[in-house]
Simulated assay, not measured.
Amino acid sequence: MPGLVALDHVQLAMPAGGEDAARAFYTGLLGLPEVAKPPVLAARGGCWFESAAVKLHLGIEADFRPARKAHPALLVDDLAALGVLLGAAGHPVTPDDALPGTARGYVDDPFGNRIELIQA
């Protein structure tokens, strides 16, 4: 039976004109490098951020509403240090201890999309 192999990427929405704010957050704070979108897709706006382990794409949505429940969960190597960095930049991390033995928290991207951060 054919099956799933892996997750290729996660796409979040953002409002038109949000590319600079996305770059500041996803590259500047989270360290995800931006990659060029294919020319046919670049004309639509948005931006793609990709590393060897994470592919996160942001696309423009005309009637944008942030994702408050649906979210990507990103593994991080130092949740406490990242929390300090994000908080100092105006993106406080809300700790969550609902899963015993798992250090995790939530942060909103510049557009209000929920991002879960989990200590690897």
Rank of each mutant, 00 (worst) to 15 (best):
A52F: 08
A120Y: 14
V10H: 00
A52N: 09
P38S: 11
D97N: 12
L75F: 10
L85G: 04
L41R: 15
L12G: 00
A103Q: 13
R65Q: 12
A98M: 06
A70I: 13
R114Y: 01
F64P: 06
D78M: 11
D63Y: 00
G45D: 03
G90H: 05
A62Y: 07
L4H: 09
V107S: 00
E34S: 13
G31H: 10
R44K: 14
L41A: 15
A73G: 13
L12F: 02
H91P: 06
G28Y: 09
A6P: 02
A22I: 02
K37P: 11
R68Q: 11
L58N: 00
K37L: 15
G3F: 12
P66N: 05
P66A: 08
F49T: 00
L12Y: 00
Q11T: 15
L41P: 06
G59F: 04
D108S: 06
Y26T: 08
A120S: 13
K37I: 08
G105M: 01
A80H: 15
G17P: 02
A120Q: 15
G59C: 05
L58T: 00
P66E: 02
E19V: 08
L7W: 05
D77R: 12
G46V: 03
T94A: 10
L99P: 05
W48N: 04
L29M: 11
A70T: 10
K55S: 12
R65N: 09
L41Y: 10
G17L: 04
